[in-house]
Design a protein around this nucleic acid. Structure first.
Lengths: 237, 237
DNA sequence: AATAAAAGTAAACGCCGTATACTCTTTGTA
DNA sequence: TACAAAGAGTATACGGCGTTTACTTTTATT
């Protein structure tokens, strides 16, 4: 029975996966906000209301797509990080940073879905999306923390935060059950992260100020400088 | 007759302005992509097809809103720049940078409209939008150029571009009819700009990695560091 | 006052998300 | 094995959307 139950669940999973795949294709073709239940149903040779057996409404489907995107991005970064020697912090950071950009470029709509303008009428359920989002930032923080513990990391002076409130906020973020990560790690992680974000968004949306051609090279130049400032630039770059 | 003609044109302008105002209100309420001709018509106590006397289609209206937004942002930055002594480059830059953020925060939907995820089904007419967009970047380049001519500007080493193609591209951007602005000015302008972009987007969209509270203070911290690196930090900040 | 242009309306087409009521088909159990 | 319950799907409908077509009203000019 457990086996039959599983097969049943499997069938449902197959259908929901096809629904999501078609939705992603639609986003690719028509833009992030163009997920249309009727169009998905048409593609599946099914009437529109039948989709409501799988998703209670359009928003839930979108939430599912968002969670998939966050997890896909996080997986890509984590995988890249874990593929290199954990003691080679510079290589780890470089791999993570390049994987981040590559995933965003390869899955532009998904990246826009999670980090771009929200879809009108859609409100994200924060209790689900926030943890998923944090997964995409955590690897960078982890690498920086590891490097700092190893005494490798150079923390640029601009990471120091005078404002006590922001400092407290950063310390709160960095407090887990057993460790208190120094707020400076949070500070440089966010600094790195918002710059990745700006660079990637610019490339994906294609409206660099006068368009920067050769976006990958530009990204590399900027990344190289950032990592150099942190003493995390791999020798071979 | 010329007078009457003008009044006629004035009436048309009044209506199109009301159309745009309602559209902006809609965006504010429902999100960037929710500009609805029928809803605008309803608000105007008019039938939907009547709107086609003023705009041939929805996309043209959106283009108009986009151009207004670009020009509004550019005006805000230019005005802030021109309000201070033109010889005080640090003050000029600080004023421009703060005006940029303030406009974006005050007109979040408009900022998203021009720099966020494109509206599905809408394709911007580049020959109109690109020049308007350039107006929003130009003031920063101008201040930096003026400061460099005055021998004030400190150009950080990361502005140097090794890649000859990107360098050539930057030089092309910086070539106007009578002057050839050094590519380094373009390089630091773009560098400043994409970081403003990342910071502002993060604040507007509210999905800082774990949300950064006190976004203005955070912006200030980052800006201060950038300007300091360029020797453009005003004394009083 | 007559006329031409501008502004607006009514009706329709084919999209959309969603709700309701109904019908098959599959499945678990008496 | 017969049957009831559950699951999957359909038909129909509602009100929303952008847009087109054909027609009417208003306004300005000669």
């Amino acid at each position: 029975m457990a086996r039959i139950k599983l097969e049943e669940e499997g069938k449902r999973a197959v259908v929901t996966n096809r629904i999501k795949a078609i939705a992603r294709q639609q986003m690719r073709d028509q833009g992030t906000a163009s997920v249309s239940l009727r169009a998905i149903a048409r593609e599946l040779d099914i009437t529109a209301p039948a989709l409501y057996r799988y998703y209670p409404d359009r928003n839930t489907l979108i939430t599912d797509l968002i969670l998939d995107a966050f997890n896909g991005l996080a997986d890509a970064v984590e995988t890249a990080d874990q593929a290199v020697n954990p003691m080679h912090y510079a290589e780890r950071m470089f791999a993570a940073v390049m994987a981040y950009r590559q995933w965003a470029v390869d899955h532009a709509v998904d990246y826009l879905l999670i980090y771009g303008t929200p879809i009108p009428g859609y409100e994200a359920p924060r209790e689900q999306t926030v943890p998923a989002m944090q997964r995409t930032v955590l690897p960078f923080g982890g690498i920086l923390y590891d490097a700092s513990k190893a005494g490798i990391l150079n923390i640029p002076p601009e990471a120091l935060i005078d404002d006590p409130e922001i400092r407290a906020h950063f310390e709160e973020i960095a407090r887990t059950d057993d460790v208190q990560v120094p707020y400076l790690i949070v500070s440089i992680t966010i600094d790195l992260w918002y710059r990745l974000y700006g660079l990637v968004m610019l490339e994906i949306l294609g409206h660099s100020p006068p368009t920067v051609k050769k976006a990958r090279e530009f990204y590399l130049i900027k990344i190289r400088q950032m990592l150099k400032d942190m003493n995390l630039l791999p020798d071979n770059f």
